[in-house]
Write a protein that binds this DNA or RNA. Structure first.
Lengths: 234, 234
DNA sequence: CACAAAAGTCAACAAGTGTTCACTGAATAA
DNA sequence: TTATTCAGTGAACACTTGTTGACTTTTGTG
């Protein structure tokens, strides 16, 4: 106790030294590596039937190749790790979306290509998406709300994208947000069903794909008719 | 072993006696009572943060007031109890839907009233709905598919309801199914968000209510425009 | 009545759980 | 060089978990 205090006085703590150099050093690199190992292990353990809350701290450390006690050097508990996973998952998604946005939107078969792109992306990041799918309604409220916040953000970005289309002229920003929300809803549901499909079942996948395309077309038609009077002389 | 065989030969088993009278007897009544107690306990334990898979068999029996070993007189394990919960939840929902269908559909404010009715129902059966919401994407694949099957059934019933409307004339049954699916999707999402709201927050609830109403109107407009050419002379 | 069927009890089991504590050894800083 | 920080160790802790087998006690039945 007193000994601890003396030590503390003789040297400045890490925060006082304003994080001078621990970044990039071999020490920090190693730490980041095991941190990543923990995140990956948790994601891996959730494959199949398991939910995040059913994965134990000890299992994670076992898979990551460290001892249980060392876990606390990285996270205060499983919940914090869960939040880090939410962050991770959406970070990669947002990056990929930015790239997709950079390339000009295809004028033809816009919906078809969008669905294709998104489901393709979901497939290459299967584990992250499955995590999100499971925790969107399942786990602790902290994680649930973190996911929901990210989805909301995602929706807003889509809404501003949609605003560029001519059909958005007659639609209020609030309604645009609502339409974007419905689109995101449909796509997320499709993604979750898609990832839940037994792998290598191209028929089911194709069926799901067509269905989603139709859903988006339905929403598109709805958006066209929104606020503008339906054809006066039909 | 041999003793057991002898006993078995001297009397016919329950199934051989084709379930003659154990129904209604005080024995069976008691059994049904504890069975219900187990289901209720599981549902109750899921309140708040917990998912079904994180609820333990022992907790359930503890809450139900029996000893862990007695659990196996009712279910082979937690998964079977989960399936029973799925059944239970949808049974009450379907019954209520049948009643709603019996009363004539309101010609005015149809969407508004439907949403109101559904959310109201969800509120009075909060626990069942929260269970479904959590297990729709979360738990074991067996339970997940059971839920999905029930939702599909629900969708089909809505589709046949929708078929009675004049606007359904230009829509193929397959597309009608798809539209009904989108409606159910939207309503379920709204329900789940609704039940996740902090209680006694009428503003948030009203906001969610309006949003859902709009979503359904959007889908309705989309359905009107579906397959029929969009107004030739706009 | 006599006897089986069956819901529920009791005790024990091997295993797994989260968290703690004093520790070691290598990277870092003075 | 020397002292310190800190990721990771190893052991121990007090629990909780699912499942088992042999039991009691009530209910149903030939």
């Amino acid at each position: 106790m007193t000994l601890k205090k003396l030590r503390a006085k003789r040297h400045r703590s890490a925060v006082e030294r304003e994080e001078a150099s621990p970044n990039g050093g071999p020490r920090d690199e190693r730490k980041q590596r095991t941190r990543r190992a923990l995140l990956d292990a948790a994601l891996e353990l959730m494959q199949g039937e398991r939910s995040f809350s059913s994965v134990s701290l000890r299992e994670v450390t076992r898979s990551a190749g460290i001892v249980p006690a060392a876990f606390y050097r990285h996270f205060s508990g499983m919940e914090e790790l869960g939040l880090a996973l939410v962050d991770d998952s959406f970070k990669t998604l947002r990056r990929s979306m930015r790239e997709a946005r950079a390339a000009a939107l295809p004028a033809t078969h816009l919906i078809q290509r969008s669905v294709q792109t998104f489901l393709g992306y979901a497939q290459t990041h299967r584990k992250h998406f499955q995590f999100i799918a499971k925790e969107r309604f399942g786990g602790s409220s902290v994680i649930r709300f973190a996911v929901r916040k990210e989805v909301h953000l995602f929706t807003s970005e889509l809404a501003t994208d949609l605003a560029r289309f001519p059909l958005a002229a007659k639609i209020s920003t609030e309604d645009l947000q609502m339409i974007a929300g419905t689109v995101v809803q449909a796509v997320l549901m499709a993604t979750e069903a898609f990832l839940d499909l037994p792998p290598n079942e191209p028929d089911d996948a194709a069926q799901l794909f067509r269905q989603t395309e139709k859903q988006l077309r339905l929403l598109f038609i709805g958006a066209q008719g929104w606020r503008s009077k339906v054809a006066r002389n039909a």
